[in-house]
Amino acid sequence: MIARHFGIGLAIVFIASYALAQGMADKGGTDKRRSGTQDMGGVLQKMQDDDTANPGMLFVQLGGELWGKASGASGKSCADCHGSVASMKGVAARYPAIPKGADAPVDLEGRIDLCRTANQRAGSLTSESRELLALTAYVAHQSRGFPITPPDDPRLAPFRARGEKLWQARQGQLNLSCAICHDDNAGKKLAGVTIPEAHPTGYPIYRLEWQTLGSLKRRLRNCLAGIRAEPYAYDAPEYVMLDLFLMDRARGMMLESPGVRP
């Protein structure tokens, strides 16, 4: 009798620990995707993790000031309509998305600029301007630690599919596709740099080479120039399509904005 009970007890413990191991495997074990952060040296990882050493946090701080500043003909600040920035928690994790009344997706920068022009009735902020980057960093920072969760909107599917096509297409004088580097050769070295898997987890990023904060768009323009393709115009829809595809490919990974990159 005792032996039998003991046997059942063991079986239950085994099942419980098996289930636990499965749960953990789904979080870290079977998911082999790597954020660009994991491919950086320890010094840069520390810099990213320390909020008083991560230069991206200077832009988050600036974004906080802009959040409360009235602008445009409306005389309203972001805070006047949105209240505390805590209302932006999780927002960056589900962009690009299609704004109400529109039929094409915008990225987070685009959404912020929409509020700027339509709601604040102020001038559009140019790509990579300090103001737009700071506001984007401030909003994105609210989603740090949130898993990427693209919206279920079926209208996004054709845009995402076009993004994937761009990802697979060879282009530029070097005749390379994004996939050749970031799918087939990720983890290998390119002129001393580890080729990352290209997950958009840290954007906007403070890139030491740039000595400033930059958007995903700027990063993509760098990769396009790197294969000697002509980067799409700043307002081209291709960036949003690639962003949609990349966010879907990174579904479930944690946002870490503002990231630091070499």
């Binding site: 008083t52 050493a53 832009f59 701080q61 600036l62 000031e65 300090r130």
Partner: peptide, 27 residues
Amino acid sequence: MANVLVNAPKTAKRGSIVEIKALILHP
């Protein structure tokens, strides 16, 4: 507009060595 991040301990033991870190945004 100046944006600065300073990392210094709020308290320290007399005679101890403290590290002060400062980061500034500049155009």
